[in-house]
């Protein structure tokens, strides 16, 4: 890889997170320093409770660190207001969660176009992009169904389409393949890999899935809220 052509899209500097539910402090993250560059296809692995989800939430601004700083596309997250963060997330980050992350009352098409709608993209363009996106995730003919009429794998494809359709710089996925069979998982992974190569979007996954680890270009292992290993493949 030619490092000098890439920019740093995410920089985490000694990020710690302490949860204090029920008065007992839990150190979920213990000083994480990480730099993610544009175009990466990175997997975040580690045992359950090692802090993967917490880290993803913090670098996306869904949660704030107890200490440390996060730069996202050149901006310090902690310095943004709630509304700024909403807009920033909408424009820069696509989310794919483990499961159940579609809006149940909206059709597949509406779910995918939702973020563009928030961003004020004109109707004709929205429609065009949604149709193209659905096609590239292999979902044709289901645009007018609602999520409950889809299989788990199809729902996850919709989530991927929604995350990618507005062409954000970064896609964050928290265990995207955890709730689907391995065949579907492999298909989706293959698809995301292709999109990563075609568009240059940055992908970061948290996962327990060996298949995801296999196809990742960089593998970061967390243990007890620290970076244990960090290897490029």
């Amino acid at each position: 890889m030619e490092q000098n052509q890439k920019t740093d899209v995410i920089v985490a500097e000694s990020v710690t997170k302490v949860y204090a539910t029920d008065g007992i402090p839990v150190n979920a993250l213990n000083g994480i320093d990480l730099t993610i560059q544009s175009g990466e296809f990175t997997a975040l692995v580690g045992p359950s409770g090692s802090g993967k989800t917490t880290f993803l939430n913090i670098i996306s601004g869904l949660d704030s660190p107890t200490e440390g700083k996060v730069w996202l596309a050149g901006k310090v997250l902690s310095e943004m207001s709630g509304n700024e963060l909403s807009d920033f997330r909408r424009d820069n980050i696509g989310f794919i969660f483990q499961a159940y992350n579609l809006i149940p009352v909206l059709t597949v098409e509406e779910n995918v176009e939702y973020i563009m709608l928030l961003a004020g993209v004109p109707k004709a363009e929205r429609h065009e992009r949604v149709i193209a996106m659905l096609e590239s995730v292999g979902l044709t003919g289901v645009a007018s169904r609602v999520p409950t009429q889809l299989s788990g794998g199809q729902q996850q494809r919709v989530a991927i389409a929604r995350a990618m359709v507005s062409e954000p710089a970064i896609i964050l996925a928290d265990e995207p393949t955890a709730n689907i069979d391995s065949k579907t998982g492999a298909d989706l992974l293959e698809m995301m890999r292709r999109l990563n190569e075609e568009t240059g979007m940055t992908f970061i996954f948290s996962t327990h899935d060996p298949m995801v680890m296999e196809s990742a270009r960089r593998l970061i292992t967390l243990r007890d809220g620290r970076v244990d290993t960090d290897e490029a493949k």
């Binding site: 807009d87 909408r90 992350n101 809006i103 928030l118």
Partner: peptide, 16 residues
Amino acid sequence: TREYGVLKAVGTKPMQ
């Protein structure tokens, strides 16, 4: 709660 969480995560403003 979860649904509202998703809405907010993808960029829906608190006011919305």
